[in-house]
Simulated assay, not measured.
Amino acid sequence: MREHETGLHSRRVACHTVVLAKHIFPNDEQRLAQIYWGALLHDLGKIGVPDGVLLKVGPLTENEWTIMRRHPDDGHRLVGRLAGMEEAADIVRSHEERFDGGGYPRGLRGEDIPFGARLFAVIDTLDAMTSDRPYRQGLTFDAAKAEILHMSGSQFDPVAVNALLAEEAVLRQMVDMKCVSEPTKST
């Protein structure tokens, strides 16, 4: 409601993360739904971030970053209140973690990060890199893929990166279309 691009981004990454999740969990509809909802709601905690920080055009100050870094925990508290959304809530809380432990809010590393959040991290970066921003044009799919491959094992789980490679044709098409559809029963 406060920033249109965030909503479109959330819908795209939910669609795209499910593509990777289906590669790993092809017949687990409940798990796929949890991963979809976790990806869709990943930035819900930003509703608690003041507009002056959330919509700021320039770089954030250290104090503003402290406020921004609270959004995964705030989102986890909100989604965690919903019955049956435990895995989705864990994805929301862990979506800013890095495979090498350099993320936030808890500095989780490797397999301590929920698997859905590790899949999401690859897709979130793919979407961010291939989307136009006011200050730069989006990269090509190939350029974004090359950067993700370069960060495999540090920022990203190699298993998630391999799923990206396995589903490259579908994801390339979705990125080109900027998919924003709602999940279907087969999602």
Rank of each mutant, 00 (worst) to 15 (best):
F156L: 09
A14F: 07
N63I: 10
T6Q: 12
L78Y: 04
I24M: 13
S181V: 07
W37M: 04
E62H: 12
Q34I: 06
G138Y: 05
M151K: 08
G48P: 09
I67G: 04
F25E: 07
V175D: 07
M129W: 13
V122W: 00
E62N: 13
W37H: 02
E64C: 08
Q155M: 06
R136N: 02
D28H: 06
Q137P: 15
S186R: 02
A128P: 12
E167W: 03
P26Q: 13
P50C: 09
I67A: 09
D43W: 10
E167H: 06
L44A: 14
I47A: 10
H95N: 02
E111A: 12
D43V: 04
E86V: 11
L126Y: 01
R12K: 14
H23A: 14
K185V: 10
A83K: 06
E64F: 02
E3Q: 15
V122F: 06
K185S: 14
V13K: 02
Y104L: 14
A163L: 08
L108S: 10
Y104P: 04
E147C: 00
R69M: 12
R172Q: 09
A163K: 01
F115V: 13
M85D: 05
V92L: 15
E147G: 00
D43H: 04
L149D: 00
K56P: 15
A166N: 04
E111L: 13
E64V: 07
R12M: 11
K56R: 11
H9N: 03
G103K: 09
E87Q: 00
R136C: 03
A160K: 03
R106S: 13
D112V: 10
D74M: 05
Q155P: 04
G45Q: 07
G48T: 04
T17A: 08
A146L: 00
R172W: 07
E147V: 01
D74R: 04
E64M: 09
C15S: 14
H16Y: 12
L139S: 05
L126W: 02
R11H: 05
V19M: 04
P158R: 00
